[in-house]
């Protein structure tokens, strides 16, 4: 049995608590998984050599959820994964705050690690989110492009 959950959050969240809550709600009594891989993206206070004070994350609501679910379905076809949880922030984010969480549960570590990495890279390239940085100088700028995660 596979199950998946996608959550878009307008305010800050605790990725560890969210994982625990998901396990308690959706995986109660489940003893078929032996591996959990999770990735947490956190906002840095610097980017491209500049100090960043805050960030505004914009998204295309309906498409975000549709694309993230499509990405998970594709991962489920590639690996034997049992549960997937993706959480992504929108709105104003400050340095040190989590931006996103991808967590994958599977029987063995290879599927968990590989699917988690795949979901992360696909999210970066397909999910319609856009970051606008507010620099400490008072200027603001759009992040133009995500870097290739495998470089």
């Amino acid at each position: 049995m596979t199950s998946r959950k996608v959550i878009i959050k307008k305010s800050t969240f605790d990725p560890w608590q969210e994982q625990e809550a998901y396990q308690a709600q959706s995986m109660q009594g489940q003893t078929s998984y032996g591996a959990t891989a999770s990735f947490i993206g956190t906002m840095r206070h610097f980017n491209e050599g500049d100090e960043v004070a805050a960030m505004e994350l914009e998204h295309y609501p309906k498409m975000t959820e549709k694309q993230l679910n499509l990405i998970i379905v594709t991962a489920e076809k590639k690996w034997l994964i049992q549960n997937t949880l993706i959480i992504h922030r929108v709105g104003k984010i400050l340095p040190g705050e989590p931006i996103m969480l991808v967590a994958v549960w599977s029987a063995h570590r290879a599927a968990a690690f590989d699917a988690c990495r795949y979901l992360m890279e696909e999210l970066k390239h397909r999910a319609p989110f856009w970051k606008k940085e507010q620099l400490v100088t008072g200027d603001s700028r759009w992040v133009e492009k995500n870097t290739d995660g495998y470089e």
Binding site: G41, H88, K124, A127
Partner: peptide
């Protein structure tokens, strides 16, 4: 869903244009 500029539209379609995505 992602598509290209030559695709034909139907009545009621929702179309969107945007720059490269930068989430994550």
């Amino acid at each position: 869903e992602y598509t290209s500029e030559d695709v034909l539209l139907s009545d009621g379609d929702e179309l969107a244009f945007f720059p490269p995505v930068t989430g994550g």
